[in-house]
Structure formats: C-alpha cells, structure tokens
Amino acid sequence: MDIRSEILNDKGINPMKSNNPTQVKVEINRQRINRRVLINEILKKVFFASTLFALAVLSVLLYRIIAQSIGWLDWHFLTSKLSIFPEKAGIYGVIIGSVGLMVVVIPVTLILGVSTAIYLEEYASKSRFQNLIKVNISNLASVPSVIFGLLGLALFGRFLNLGSSILAGGLTLSLLVLPIVVVSSQEALKAVPNFLREASYAMGAGKWTTIRKVVLPVAIPGILTGAILSISRAIGETAPLVVLGIPALLLKVPTSLMDDFTALPIQIYYWTLDTVLTPEYANLAAATIVVLLITLFLMNSIAIVIRNKTQKTY
C-alpha cells in the first residue's frame, strides 16, 4: 500500500471509491502540512533543551563546588598560611601571590596594549608593517596559553634569570593577555567619532594633543572594560604559570616581586592532583575555586557597570 492510500485509509476515505479528486488532494496536503508543523514543533523543543543544557551544567558545577567548600571557606582559611594539614591550611600567601601578579600585569598590559592600539588606530598608515602587526596580534590571540609558558620559561625564567618569581610570572601573563587589550582598545578608539578629532584639529591642536585631550577621554571607558576583562582572564590562567615551575607547596608569603610565589589557580591545581592522597584537599580546592570565582564575578560586574554608566552615543 503506498503512502497516499495509507493516509486516506486513516481518514476513512477509500481512494478507489472516492470520486472527488480535489477532496483527496486537500486531504493529502493537510496531512503533509500537519506533519511538517509537528516536526517543527518537536525540534524546536529539542533545540531549546540543548540550549538549556548549558544552564544545567552551570548550575550543577556551581552547586557541587559550593557544596564542597561549605565548612572550609571561613575567615581562618583566608588569613592563614598554607600547610600540609588540611584543617590548618589557608590561602593568605596564595592571595598575596595573585595580587602580586596583578601588580605586574596591570601596568605592563595597559601601557603596552593601549600604546599599540593608539599606534594602530591613530598613527599607522595602511602600510605593510601595520598589516604585519595586525596579523601578528590575531595569531597571538590563538596561540595556546601553555606555549606562552614555554616562552616565559625560556625568556624570563632562564635567559633573564628571573626563575619562577612573581615578575617572571607577571610578564608571561602580560604577553598572554596583550592581544585582548590591544583588540578591545582598538575597538574603543574606533568608536570615537571622527568629527571630534576634526573639531580639535580645526582649533589648531596637534595630533598628540588631540589624542590626549579629545580621543582618550572619550575612549577610556571602553579601554577600561577591555582591560578589566583581560585581567580577569590573567587571574584565572594556570598553564603558563605551571610551566614556569611554581613550587607545589610554598609556605613562605612572598614579600617582593622577585620572590617565588603561588597563585589561586595553581593552588587549585596542586590540591586537586593531591586528592588521591588526602581527600580533604578537594574541599580546599573547592573553597579556593569559590574565592577565585567571586573575584572574577566582581571584576566582570565592575566592567559591566563601567560600560553601562559611561555609554555615550554621538
């Protein structure tokens, strides 16, 4: 039996006996349309479910981590030093290490990144060299972070003999996030309308004066937003620092930029690896993750607030 007569039989129409061809045709068409609409509706639900998958994973992940950290994340944990005994361990030195990294990363990336962006957007002509820098930056952004660790190990660790100090780690991370700062600052500079520049030139201002007094003040919120986002990337980055050879258990709190250090993500890594021997380390790792995620969340909120408060339209 072909599909046509099957459909008609369902509807109680006998194709052999029906002598109204229009009725038959309409019936078949309606069946087909209904089927197409049904498939449409079903797949729409399937697509929605798969979109919700991301939400489900996020909630499970957060729930698991927070549940594991309860009872471990307290004032004592934040203010005492590392220890091999899980009950005594705290992440004071680890937090200081992460702060030290930021002390290096923030000025280096801001100066290098914003200057590069200003050069590319305001000064560079459409030359080969400018094109080269552009291609370079987009390629840098896609190099795996662990390779930046190898670069840092060879350049800062061995060649400049900085070892695994905060300075070496900070410089490595700066190179890693540099492309993000450059691209976002370029976007911010591009968004400054040209008539502002032209008005400034018409008043007799030079190029640098125009950039300093007209372009930068308008572009600064955008630049800051990008900078905060890239710094939050640097805070969570682990692989390049592990490659630099950060010690697994550092009891001393770093006091200068040349000291050895450990940072939040690295401590999470080592504690997770050691859960085989001491199961409580999983709780310590979870508590550290909560600290890390709260930091990142705060930084992203600041970035969003800056973006929303200072959004101007010309």
């Binding site: 991301a54 994973v57 996020l58 992940l61 981590i65 939050s232 805070i235 969570g236 980055e237 682990t238 692989a239 993500p265 999470i268 890594y269 997770t272 790792a285 979870a286 993750i289 890390l292 995620l293 990142l296 992203n300």
Partner: peptide, 11 residues
C-alpha cells in the same frame, strides 16, 4: 560559562 577558568573545569 565561557569566562570560567579552565582549572575549574578540570576540577
């Protein structure tokens, strides 16, 4: 989800 550090996913 995209902003969560990979170390957290590892854990």
């Amino acid at each position: 989800l995209a902003g969560i550090p990979t170390i957290v996913y590892g854990f």
